[in-house]
């Protein structure tokens, strides 16, 4: 109970940056999805830590919602990856380059 809030925040930031690192460097769509999950959970850690910090349950409840949304996001993400694979025979995110000028 005596861990200072800074550490939670740092942990959260570290997780977020790790997720971001994955997104920036990996090319596999599944890795992308996992990285996004890590970032979402970094946010969750923040929410819960500050719920404890302020003695307010709202953060905790919100973390639950975020988890539900993450599940939804994964469902969609996997669907997109499936389509991606069907169209390009690959899950490499650098292969589809039609989103451009």
């Amino acid at each position: 109970m005596n861990v200072p809030i800074e550490y939670f925040v740092l942990l959260s930031m570290a997780l977020f940056s790790i997720g971001l690192f994955g997104i920036l460097t990996r090319r596999n769509a599944l890795m992308f999805l996992m990285s996004v999950e890590i970032m979402v959970n970094a946010a969750n850690i923040n929410l819960i830590a500050f719920a404890l910090y302020h003695g307010n349950l709202t953060g905790q409840v919100f973390a639950l919602f975020v988890m539900a949304l993450a599940a939804a996001e994964v469902a969609i993400g996997l669907g997109i990856i499936l389509v991606l694979y069907r169209n390009f025979r690959d899950v490499d995110v650098t292969v589809p380059t039609t989103m451009r000028w």
């Binding site: 920036l24 460097t25 090319r27 650098t94 380059t97 039609t98 989103m99």
Partner: peptide, 17 residues
């Protein structure tokens, strides 16, 4: 400037960051 729009998702993410 339009050349930075490569169509590669990673580059977009890098730009946003």
């Amino acid at each position: 400037v339009k050349r930075i729009q490569t169509g590669i998702v990673t580059n977009y993410a890098a730009l946003i960051v």
